[in-house]
Design a protein around this nucleic acid. Structure first.
Lengths: 214, 214
DNA sequence: TGTACATCAGTGAACGCGCGTTCACTGATGTAC
DNA sequence: TGTACATCAGTGAACGCGCGTTCACTGATGTAC
């Protein structure tokens, strides 16, 4: 970096090579810090070290860029949820395992919301992609959407006999609402700034409620 | 209106008389249509028929205006919730009444989110005011915040013996999370555009879950 | 293997826009005498 | 009751800003002969 405020990472090649990806990555960084409205086309190109209009080779619109960033954020969320499931200690008790996997879905969701509020808000800012389209599948990732992970976990509860089959339909939306609501209250709402320990407790209590009430 | 696009409502007096209120009202209208980001200072003054800088007599900032609008939106939410409780048929069964009042809190909350998504989002966009400060108390309104209404309803459940006293602490956040989450999913999320009947059903199911799981 | 050429990812300059905010002002209102 | 004056809510013009987007362009790359 030669001059203050000059963040242009100079390329050696005239062509960038992977600009589309670089722009999405830059957009993710912007979203991470300021949520969806911070995903500004000119800022993304600046961060990628490219002229503003270069973005139009890869996105029709500022909106198309935002949409791609939103999808990538959703993929991040899914990856965090899967990571949470991966940390579970192995057990021979099938029912306990099913329960633990179910709870990990919620815990991972909440952890992501807490650790990456900007990305979380960005993931949900753009028309419903949670239930569809997993976007890029990173190494070691199933490619499932958050919604699919939740569905699988619920199926596991039914198989383990922890959830009556007749309660299964629509259960996604009950569980999802409760966890998503807590996430929103923690991020944007009156629960912001709660002590991390209390945040974790609140999450567990909400998941308890879901298990009881589902 | 003499010219197309000229929305300036001309005053007779030089002084406006009630500009602060007019700006908040204009802000509410903007928020109603486009959420918090649509609360634009110049647009509000335009709608009030006043020069842009006139706003600075009543608000230090664009942010101060947004904050006032957000509080007013929150007051609207509270009013809708109270209205929902008012429509309940009278009953002599104290337990049934307590339950109905509790459910009306959630139903009113969801109804407002559905009918006024822009105001709903605006109410929650700005740092936590739901638990405090009821803002302007309209005629026939208690002045309670949404949070207080929920608390009162929960106290009613305890008094009626429908909720064990030891489950009461923290119950606000469980109920609130679930209902708030559904509201968010219906407005911004993948449940947007759900058929109104299904929306109502989903709301009732979530409230069922809360009653069971609280 | 060497050359001509088409492709198309990036450049550089410019546009119009609406925004928030500041400035020095004006003139209606309420009050003191 | 009539007049002088202070107050302060609104005016009008201007500012600098960063944005998204368009234009005609340039030059590295890959391919056909």
């Amino acid at each position: 970096m030669t001059a203050v405020g000059n963040n242009k990472p100079k390329r050696e090649t005239y062509r960038h090579g992977d600009l589309r990806n670089a722009l999405v990555e830059a957009g993710l960084e912007l979203a991470r810090q300021g949520g969806p409205t911070a995903v500004v086309l000119r800022a993304a190109t600046r961060q990628a070290g490219v002229a503003p209009n270069a973005a139009y080779r890869h996105f029709t619109d500022r909106n198309a860029l935002l949409h791609a960033v939103s999808q990538a954020a959703m993929a991040h969320l899914a990856r965090t949820m899967e990571a949470e499931q991966t940390t579970l200690p192995p057990t021979t008790d099938a029912a306990a395992a099913a329960r633990a996997r179910f709870r990990a879905v919620g815990t991972g969701y909440l952890r992501f919301a807490q650790e990456e509020p900007g990305l979380f808000r960005t993931a949900f800012h753009v028309p419903g992609d949670m239930t569809h389209a997993a976007a890029d599948t990173a190494a070691g990732t199933t490619g499932k959407t958050p919604f699919e992970l939740l569905g699988t976990a619920l199926d596991g509860l039914v198989e383990a006999g922890l959830l009556p089959e007749d309660r299964r339909p629509g259960a996604e939306f009950l569980a999802w609402s409760a966890v998503h609501g807590l996430a929103c209250l923690l991020i944007d709402g009156p629960l912001r700034g709660l002590h991390p320990t209390r945040v974790h407790d609140a999450g567990q209590h909400v998941i308890d409620m879901i298990e009881r009430g589902i």
